[in-house]
């Protein structure tokens, strides 16, 4: 569907995107995950046509779109701050992209009504963006971008402006929406929970490069590098025999095992309880069920993990 070949983009002397190769399949939710400044937004903007890459190609359905203007691309974007037109109503915003398509007025109105129903904004068609809540604005942005029936929907941190509760609900809705439409979603986020929750595959970015591509479970269980291991979820990391060994906190069992240390602090998170232990391996974290009791601070505990919980990583 989307094929990116050796893509590079420089700003001044800085390489924002540094030789990215990537393939995104028809109908998948692909997430570009990474810390701020890793190049994920620049990569998305290259796909949208807002940045022209210095090197490499972008193919959409086999067609080279690298130099194509954004208004000629069969992709649409949900912008981070939504970028709704403040002088147009909800219906006006959604209809905007249809004005340049060859459609009758009746077809256009039908499409707008269909989009409004799709994102459940019924009754708000005449409102201005300033009269909407944050969640409603986000729905308008999605409806507006989907109205042109793009082959790919690009979403730039679309949930970052919502509060935590709404964000979780919206995640689910996005997944449902994508399943119904069957088009590819390319999603940019710095929030690993969000990426894990909604993606079919994740591309983890660091310093302009994609360091690992895989399904969420693959990225979590078999991180390719130390950076991925530390960026995606919590991890214990220590050196043994010249290699870095990574162990997820939920694989650490307390009460028995070859290691021991002193409990420094316990953090109760509801479902889970994190226990921080100072040991000869360094500061270790164990994640136990929240319903399990907490050891006392200062107590000495034994701990260990099954052999398959260990993963050796290159530097």
């Amino acid at each position: 569907m989307i094929r990116i070949e050796r893509l590079a983009k420089r700003f001044g002397g800085v390489l924002a995107v540094d030789g990215v190769d990537l393939e995104i399949a028809q109908g998948e939710i692909f997430c570009l995950l990474g810390p701020s400044g890793c190049g994920k937004t620049t990569l998305l903007r290259c796909i949208g046509g807002f940045e022209v890459p210095d090197e490499g190609r972008i193919l959409l359905d086999g067609q080279d779109v690298t130099g194509l203007a954004p208004w000629l691309r069969p992709v649409n974007t949900v912008f981070q701050s939504y970028a709704l037109f403040p002088h147009l109503s909800v219906a006006g915003n959604i209809a905007f992209g249809l004005e340049t398509l060859a459609m009758s007025k009746a077809d256009r109105e039908a499409r707008v009504a269909e989009m409004i129903a799709l994102v459940r904004l019924d009754g708000l068609a005449a409102r201005r963006p300033s009269q909407l809540s944050g969640g409603q604005r986000q729905r308008v942005a999605i409806a507006r971008a989907l109205a042109r029936h793009p082959k790919v929907l690009l979403l730039d941190e679309p949930l970052s402006a919502l509060d935590a509760k709404l964000r979780e609900e919206t995640r689910l809705e996005l997944v449902e929406l994508q399943a119904r439409l069957g088009i590819s979603f390319v999603f940019v986020t710095h929030d690993q929970d969000e990426a894990m929750a909604i993606s079919d595959r994740i591309g983890v970015m660091q310093g302009g490069r994609i360091v690992q591509v895989g399904a969420p479970a693959e990225i979590y269980d078999r991180p390719a590098t130390r950076f991925v291991a530390e960026f995606v979820g919590r991890i214990n990391m220590f050196e043994r025999g010249g290699a870095w060994i990574a162990v997820r906190p939920e694989r650490v069992a307390l009460g028995a095992g070859p290691h021991s240390g002193i409990v420094r602090e316990c953090a109760f998170l509801g479902e889970r309880r994190l226990i921080f232990i100072d040991s000869p391996l360094g500061r270790m974290t164990a994640s136990v069920a929240g319903s399990d009791g907490a050891p006392e601070n200062g107590a000495t505990v034994a701990f260990g993990w099954p052999a398959d919980a260990e993963r050796a990583l290159p530097q």
Partner: peptide, 22 residues
Amino acid sequence: DAALVEAAHDLGAAPVRAFWRV
């Protein structure tokens, strides 16, 4: 907001149209 002009481009409006509509 420069993003509004980008949004117009994204939605199929070439620069002249984006200017007059946004």
